[in-house]
């Protein structure tokens, strides 16, 4: 009988002790987490392009927090989906083609200024106020602020807005990763073969 009592007492006190420890740890080492919406929003590319079907990145972040699918963001592409999947602990899915395809290079809008009639429609469409101009004045894009979202292209009545790839200069250029040995040998072989054929 006493054995049982001892066992119960020991187990109970151990439970109490560890419970207290865990409780203390959870209070003492509490990690102040961002609300999920903010964390999701931080991962989204903030192009505010609306391709996801929501009027901006924040609304989409809110929708994701409410269970919306994470694969509706073409500007973010696979890497964003992966990051979202990691954050939310869900399986990454391939990008939903319904919302558009991922672009290889970042784009910026460019207004052909001599064709611009100054209608301000693009200014109203720009989600980040990156277009400068006034009624009947020619408009121009602030390249550094443009997110390449495309939204200004559609409203332009004279189609004077182009999306051009962001240019690289010597300060933004960097070496690409080298091709690995195996690939290099493979390409060498191919070129040798093609030479032989020629």
């Amino acid at each position: 009988m006493s054995t049982i009592i001892i066992a119960i007492v020991v187990l109970a006190s151990l439970a109490a002790l560890f419970g207290a420890l865990l409780g203390f740890a959870s209070v003492r080492f509490r990690v102040e987490g961002n609300p999920v919406v903010d964390q999701v929003n931080d991962l989204l590319p903030q192009t505010q392009c609306g391709q996801c079907g929501f009027p901006g990145c924040k609304p989409y972040a809110e929708a994701i927090a409410d269970g919306e699918k994470i694969n509706k963001c073409p500007p973010g592409g696979e890497s964003t989906i992966q990051a979202l999947a990691d954050l939310l602990g869900v399986e990454p899915e391939p990008l939903d083609a319904e919302h558009g395809a991922e672009k290889d290079v970042p784009m910026v809008a460019y207004i052909r200024e001599d064709e611009c009639i100054g209608c301000t429609k693009c200014i109203q469409a720009c989600p980040v106020d990156a277009i400068l101009g006034a009624a009947k004045q020619m408009h121009t894009v602030i390249v550094d602020e443009c997110t390449g979202c495309d939204l200004c292209v559609e409203p332009c009545p004279v189609d004077c807005i182009d999306m051009v790839p962001q240019s690289t200069d010597t300060s933004s250029w960097y070496w690409q990763a080298p091709t690995t040995g195996v690939e290099l040998i493979a390409t060498d072989r191919r070129s040798l073969k093609t030479e032989a054929h020629a």
């Binding site: 903030q46 192009t47 505010q48 990145c57 980040v128 990156a130 602020e145 997110t147």
Partner: peptide, 8 residues
């Protein structure tokens, strides 16, 4: 992106 978010 942060800048764009602020502007948006």
């Amino acid at each position: 992106a942060e800048q764009a978010r602020i502007r948006y």
